[in-house]
């Protein structure tokens, strides 16, 4: 394995790790709101969150490139904040990946929150627990499997991302050249041996992640 392969693997893990932490921080309040709200905006917000499931990555990549570029509103904003523009940078990939993987984190959490129901929250309230106390000592422990699924799926989906990164990454070593893009590169350059090593690694990794995820889930029928 060459240095560039290793650097791409480390970069991919760093990206997926950063994105997973941010995803959970963002997805928890969002999923909670979606699970509990009676607001009319619920449908629209749920649809926006789920968009990346349906949209081709090329659409997301193209819009992000235009929106976050120096002529786009997002780009003007980041430039006026002194951050420069985000395409071709690691933070840019983080932003794109968070958007792209959001439904994979929100939906398991939302399901978990919905499954808790009213009863435990009412009990907590009669015991005079405040909303934060309730959230941390009742809701989170009860939704641990959902939290686990959200983290694993968010991480794995970011590792598996390709189209968005290709469109706004610029293929820069150590900054935006992730494993999926490097494999594409190897294939284009006819370096099939290296492409095989990395592709095989991705296959094994993805299987392990999903095996871990489904192996931890208990039999849903009849047993809570």
């Amino acid at each position: 394995m060459s240095d560039s392969d290793l650097s791409a693997i480390l970069l991919t893990l760093r990206l997926a790790g950063t994105v997973t932490v941010l995803l959970l921080l963002l997805a928890m309040p969002l999923a909670w709101w979606l699970a509990r709200t009676r607001s009319r905006a619920r449908g629209a917000v749920a649809a926006v969150v789920a968009l990346p499931l349906v949209l081709p990555p090329s659409v997301l990549g193209f819009y992000l490139l235009v929106f976050l570029g120096p002529n786009g509103p997002g780009g003007r904003l980041t430039e006026s904040l002194g951050l420069g523009t985000l395409p071709f940078t690691f933070p840019g990939l983080v932003v794109a990946s968070v958007l792209y993987s959001l439904p994979f984190a929100v939906q398991p959490l939302q399901n978990a929150f919905e499954a808790i129901g009213e009863r435990p929250l009412e009990v907590a309230a009669t015991l005079r627990a405040g909303p934060w106390d309730t959230f941390f000592s009742v809701v989170l422990p009860l939704s641990r499997p959902g939290l686990f699924s959200a983290a694993v799926l968010g991480f794995a989906h970011t590792v598996g991302e390709f189209g968005v990164v290709l469109m706004m990454g610029g293929n820069i070593p150590d900054r935006t050249r992730v494993v999926s893009v490097l494999i594409y590169d190897h294939v284009d350059a006819l370096e099939y041996t290296q492409a095989h090593w990395l592709s095989g690694g991705m296959l094994a990794f993805s299987f392990l992640v999903l095996f871990l995820l489904y192996g931890f889930k208990r039999n849903p029928v009849g047993r809570p």
Binding site: L65, G69, P70, P87, F88, L166, M167, M168, N171, I172
Partner: peptide, 20 residues
């Protein structure tokens, strides 16, 4: 400072959009 397009068309697009 180099950013790479996957092919010459994408490279053109990076420049045309002002990102590079």
């Amino acid at each position: 400072r180099i950013v790479q397009g996957e092919n010459i068309a994408q490279t053109h697009q990076f420049v045309a959009s002002g990102n590079a």
